[in-house]
């Protein structure tokens, strides 16, 4: 993990890129100088990796790994402490019938639910992540966003999932996006920062690559696809692209950064495809919940059913996993 001090991490650890963030023009030149992305080729590569056949022992390994990488998420207007406690219990003990089932990586909630979540997972090692910065639209003044972050951190959040200012990004004000990330990173203190791009709104793969680099330069600990609140969320292709970005960033700076696809990953088959992407793009160093997460909720039950199938040899059903 990045062990350097927050906020200053990019500048210190990646001096090669210090010039890139010196001005809006410099940053724009840098981002537009990144290699382009060919849509068809990227999607074909993602699809091709999707044909890997993961069976038996490899499947068992992948299922447990996937469970351990889940940020079990509830982000509803209707969330209550009771709902969050149930979620926390599920994260700590996903399958009551099988205590060997790994715990999820974290629960992910709104800032006002952090305290309840913290209590629910206390002592388990499950982290509490909180969306902040006027999630999901991010349309608030910076002060409000930072206050949102500090509030969540003060309530005990281990991780902060921020959203970038897509309006600023799409209008070419990259430095604004960057500076906001730097500020949020500083507000995070010890908490790890996940930077959400809302890839569905960025629209092009070139934009996703540029956003990835802004995020990485800004001090993100994770780059994350999406909020789960728009039409298109995590896809194999946009996740593959972000994995290429963290791979390249580590090669150039030595800094390893995590990736979190979120939204739309519902089945074991999907999750395993993403793990194959990780394995064959960023590499085995990322096959750990410190470096890769799934932002998901219904995925967990499907993984649990598949896990039961592997251990019992028969297909499970929704009545044999918990509804939370």
């Amino acid at each position: 993990m990045p062990t350097t001090a927050p906020a200053a991490s990019a500048a210190l650890a990646a001096p090669a890129f210090a010039d890139a963030t010196a001005s809006d023009r410099a940053l724009r030149r840098f981002l537009h100088g990144l290699p382009g992305v060919d849509t068809v080729g990227l999607e074909a590569r993602a699809a091709s990796l999707g044909t890997r056949s993961i069976k038996t022992t490899a499947k068992a390994y992948a299922i447990d790994l996937a469970i351990s990488m889940i940020d079990l998420t509830t982000l509803e207007g209707a969330d209550t402490p009771g709902k969050v406690r149930a979620l926390g219990a599920k994260a700590v003990n996903p399958d009551p019938t099988d205590r060997t089932t790994p715990r999820t990586a974290a629960v992910c909630v709104y800032p006002d639910m952090v305290a309840a979540a913290k209590e629910a997972v206390a002592g388990s090692g499950v982290k509490v992540a909180s969306v902040a910065t006027a999630f999901p639209a991010g349309r608030a003044a910076l002060d409000i966003k930072l206050a949102d972050v500090r509030d969540a951190v003060a309530a005990g959040a281990d991780e902060i999932d921020m959203v970038i200012d897509r309006g600023a990004f799409l209008s070419g004000r990259y430095l604004k996006v960057y500076e906001e990330i730097v500020a949020v990173k500083e507000a995070c203190g010890e908490a790890r920062l996940k930077v959400i791009f809302e890839t569905g709104e960025l629209s092009t793969y070139d934009n996703i690559r540029r956003a990835s680099w802004i995020g990485m330069l800004g001090g993100a600990d994770f780059i994350k696809t999406s909020t789960g609140k728009v039409g298109v969320n995590a896809t194999p292709a946009n996740t593959l692209l972000m994995l290429e970005a963290v791979r390249d960033f580590r090669a150039q700076t030595g800094i390893q950064i995590g990736v979190k696809p979120a939204g739309g990953i519902r089945t074991t088959k999907d999750a395993i495809k993403f793990l194959v992407l990780v394995n064959e793009t960023a590499g085995a160093d990322w096959l750990d919940n410190h470096w890769f997460r799934f932002g998901a909720s219904s995925l967990l039950n499907d993984l649990l059913m598949q896990r039961q199938k592997l251990s019992t040899g028969r297909y499970s059903g929704p009545d044999y996993v918990t509804v939370d």
Binding site: M1, K59, Y61, L287, D288, W291
Partner: peptide
């Protein structure tokens, strides 16, 4: 890496059966 991550990686890699 975190120590437990390194240990886990060493113990088990994503070998396709």
């Amino acid at each position: 890496q975190t120590p437990q991550a390194a240990a886990q990686a060493a113990a088990q890699a994503f070998d396709y059966a």
